[in-house]
Nucleic acid binder design. Sequence first.
DNA 1: TATATATATAGGAATATTTGCAGATGCGAT
DNA 2: ATCGCATCTGCAAATATTCCTATATATATA
Lengths: 126, 126
Amino acid sequence: MVWILKAVRQQLSNFKADFFKALAHPLRISILDALRLGELTVNEISQRFSIEPANASQQLAVLRNKGIVVTRKEGSNVYYSVSDSAIFKLLDAAREIFNNHLIGVRGMLEEIRLEQAQTPKRRGER
Amino acid sequence: MVWILKAVRQQLSNFKADFFKALAHPLRISILDALRLGELTVNEISQRFSIEPANASQQLAVLRNKGIVVTRKEGSNVYYSVSDSAIFKLLDAAREIFNNHLIGVRGMLEEIRLEQAQTPKRRGER
DNA sequence: TATATATATAGGAATATTTGCAGATGCGAT
DNA sequence: ATCGCATCTGCAAATATTCCTATATATATA
């Protein structure tokens, strides 16, 4: 009957992996950071990050399907908020790891430099 | 000059996302859990999880590229260990979230059920 | 009722990831 | 030097994800 334990452990790993997969997207990370200050509607998020409302709704759906965010409907608006402050604890732990080891900072600066060199931004552009 | 801040924030989100992406794999989650008790060689990991050594090495390379694990070479063996105990803090935070909300438990049971019923595969089911 | 707004979902093309396997590399022993 | 072992890397097919467009649904307003 040991195979049951193995199967459960494997399934647990699968679901932890799915959970991290939900976090493994730049836009979704940014959205969660924005939700630190409180709930936001799809429209507000789409405006804040200059993306299509459909795209915002899609990314929020990914977070919602994993239970990371919850919704509250008011009129025709849907307010999204983080379901559990432990989520922020997790994000803080991630930040601590970044601070400890400066993972990828050199590469990050390099990428910014390349990005600007490829598509030079004009003055006053947001 | 505001675009610099935006670019930095976006790059930070990119790198956090890459970090979570490295965690977003069942095998890599299992490997990190196994590394809680101390360092392991590629061979030990491949035996413990019944996978090809090449596969173990590949998954460890993903973790190594993100600085999540570090290596120590001794003879022809390479010992892997977690680089920062904050990693375990993060995994614990993830576990707390799971315990708080039982994220995906319904889906987990569902998947186990489907796995058992996989032999007679049904139409229209994912 | 019709119309506009807010959100959700379906489909598809472009892109990225996973997986297993073959070959390459490095190291110790003979 | 060759052999055996441990590890790493490259390749390619299968699979999954992203992002966009179009459409659907629900709600408020005129």
